[in-house]
Simulated scan of single mutants.
Amino acid sequence: MEPAVPGAAVTVALFNAAITPELTIANMKLRKKPDGDLKIEAPRAFGEPAALMRRPLVNRIHAAAVAAYKGICIDRFSH
């Protein structure tokens, strides 16, 4: 294990994105940037992105992932 690079985004969740009933993108990452913003990353194979997506799809996946993450965090820590 290596220490996190200062200023680098940190992975806070791994998730699968069900795009259609026939297509799921597995092992996507939700990462927290140093400024607190959350971003998603496609899975990688051989050091390269394993999926390429256009901005509208990225925006929909990002919104769903952030909502789920915030819901989990609120539920877990609100008790």
Rank of each mutant, 00 (worst) to 15 (best):
V58P: 00
I40T: 05
K29N: 13
V58Y: 07
S78N: 10
R31M: 15
F46D: 15
M53R: 07
A50P: 05
F77A: 04
I19V: 15
M53W: 00
L38E: 09
G36W: 11
R60A: 14
P56C: 04
L14A: 03
L30E: 02
R54T: 02
P34N: 07
G71N: 08
G71Q: 10
M28F: 11
E41K: 07
R54G: 13
K39W: 01
P43W: 07
L23S: 04
I61D: 00
V58N: 05
R31W: 01
E48G: 05
N16P: 00
V66Q: 02
V10Y: 05
L38G: 02
G7C: 11
I74W: 10
V58A: 02
C73N: 12
A9Y: 08
T20C: 08
G36E: 12
A17C: 10
I72R: 10
S78G: 02
L23H: 09
L52R: 14
A9N: 10
S78Y: 01
L23Q: 09
D75L: 11
N16S: 15
R44C: 06
D37T: 15
L38S: 03
I61G: 00
A65S: 04
R76H: 09
P21Q: 06
K32F: 01
A17W: 01
P56I: 04
R76I: 00
T20D: 07
D35E: 12
L30Q: 07
K32V: 14
G71W: 05
N27S: 15
A9V: 03
K33A: 11
D37L: 09
G47K: 13
A17G: 03
A50H: 09
S78T: 06
A50W: 13
I19L: 13
K70G: 00
R31S: 02
P6W: 13
C73Q: 13
I72K: 08
T20S: 15
V10R: 12
A50K: 15
V58F: 11
K29E: 15
I74A: 12
T24N: 04
P49N: 06
I74V: 12
A8R: 09
R76S: 04
R60P: 00
L30N: 03
A68C: 05
E48V: 15
P6F: 10
D37M: 05
T11I: 09
D35M: 09
T11E: 14
A9L: 04
I74Q: 08
A68Y: 04
F15A: 10
A63M: 03
N27L: 05
A13W: 12
N16D: 15
A42L: 07
L52T: 10
A68M: 12
A26M: 12
I25P: 01
L30A: 10
F46Q: 14
L23K: 11
C73M: 13
N27W: 05
T24Q: 06
G7K: 06
D35H: 05
P56T: 04
V10K: 14
L52N: 11
A8T: 06
M53A: 09
F15V: 12
P34S: 11
I25S: 04
E22Q: 15
M28S: 06
R44I: 01
Y69T: 04
R44A: 12
R31E: 10
V12N: 12
A17S: 13
A42N: 06
A51W: 06
K29M: 14
R54S: 07
